[in-house]
Amino acid sequence: MKILHSYKVYRPDIDGGIPFVIAALSRLVDNDVTNGILVARRVGKARRYVIDDVPVEALSSLGTIFSTPIAPAFPLVLLRRSSAVDIVVHHAPFPLADMVSSFLPDDVALIVYWHADIVGHSWLKTLMTPVIKRTLRRANRIVVSDRTIVDNSPLLSPFADKCVVVPYGVDVDFWNTPSAMERNTALRLRDQYPRMVLTIGRLVPYKGLDVLLRAMQELDAQLIIIGEGPLEMDLKRTASDTGLTARVTFAGRLARSDMKTYLHAARVLAFPSVTSAEAFGIVQLEAMAAGLPIVNTALTTAVPHIARHEKESLTVPHHDSHALAAAIRRILDEPTLAGRLGEAGHLRARTEYSNDRFLSRMKVVYDEVTQSCQRNRSNTVG
């Protein structure tokens, strides 16, 4: 079984949720499964490389527009590459792949991994809707991380019978078990910042970091922001203008080991996202695996269903800095509550969101679509 994953960009050009999922899926390798990845560069010349023992072809790009790489060669290369594989996994949203996904060879299975709708570019969504619907009609299966994605998407609703829910997973043992060096560093950080609030994610509008900075004005705490993105200078300016510079650290993009260290040093993970562009929130799973309590927001997505109010998290209305500050303060001031939420989060991550469970569910989807294609070929020949 040869599988080709198609998406906009990939590591090392960018980290984040969807590249993380692709990386996890690429670890599903046995006698029956091999993986390849086709992406574009954020900007720059094409290159081929191997990461985590998986070959990656990153096509040249002139830059990005509306979060999409300007990579003219992508549709034709996807068509050419698809003829040599059994399954194409189209990680959506990615309009360049939608342009040709419906034209893949009949004997190639198409899985649309629908991570989120196009959010924030209404004219682009309107323009691409007919093309996306054509892709969804061609798809053998549509994978979503949570049922709310189907329920809230006008595009997916007509294809609900094709949709299958496969929640993301994380390496629970990795995030839960710091090395001796990581543990010592975490202890030093906790001594330095005994009331550390941590947030992790790209510095983009839907993450709600402006709301978190307003909340910090009401808190006696230190905020560590891990991530990079186009809003970095604006957020630093806001921190300066509100007198928070000494209590807010912009740590930038960090390696997984360093992120784990901060997860074990922090007292709470703040996850203040404000729009449905935050469809799931994998960083919640990483924090839960590490036993860290969470404050998240009541979005109409999977976010508050993963870390649930008063079980693994405290959930507050989005855009509400006062409620966000009150929930964070409650966890900082009530160690018993923090411990209860953290322990419940770790148990939920281990039982519901482990990588092994995630990959075994996806393997079932792979087997189903390949068997379906084989039956179709047999019927055609007959």
Rank of each mutant, 00 (worst) to 15 (best):
A160E: 15
D173Y: 09
P178Y: 00
L189A: 02
V131I: 14
R147N: 08
L156Q: 06
P167F: 04
P167I: 03
P154A: 06
R134W: 14
V131N: 15
A139C: 14
F174T: 02
C163E: 00
V170W: 14
A160G: 10
G169C: 06
V131W: 11
R137Q: 13
R141V: 08
C163W: 01
N184I: 07
R137D: 09
V119W: 13
A139W: 07
L187R: 09
R138G: 11
D173Q: 12
D191A: 07
I149H: 05
L189C: 01
S157E: 07
L189G: 00
S153N: 05
D171V: 12
R183D: 06
T135A: 06
L187M: 13
D146S: 01
T148R: 10
A160S: 14
W123G: 06
S157P: 01
T177K: 04
I118P: 07
A139G: 15
T129K: 13
V166L: 04
V143G: 02
R137T: 14
V131S: 13
V172P: 05
H121E: 15
D173T: 10
V144N: 02
N176D: 12
L136V: 07
N140D: 09
S179Y: 02
T129W: 08
D171I: 02
M181S: 15
V170F: 12
V119Q: 11
V165L: 00
W175N: 03
T177G: 03
V150Q: 03
R188H: 07
V166A: 01
D146F: 00
W175V: 05
R183N: 07
T135S: 15
L187H: 08
A160H: 13
A180P: 03
L189E: 00
H121T: 14
T177Y: 09
T129Y: 04
W175Q: 03
S145P: 11
K125L: 15
P154N: 12
D151I: 05
N140G: 10
A180N: 12
R137C: 04
D151E: 15
V119M: 07
T148W: 02
N140T: 09
A180V: 15
F159C: 07
R147V: 05
F159P: 06
T129A: 15
T185L: 13
K125H: 08
D171M: 13
A186K: 02
D173A: 14
T177S: 14
D191S: 11
L156N: 04
C163I: 02
P178E: 04
R188E: 10
V166G: 01
M128W: 08
E182F: 10
S157F: 05
A139T: 06
L187C: 09
D173S: 11
V172C: 13
R137N: 10
T135P: 04
V164E: 02
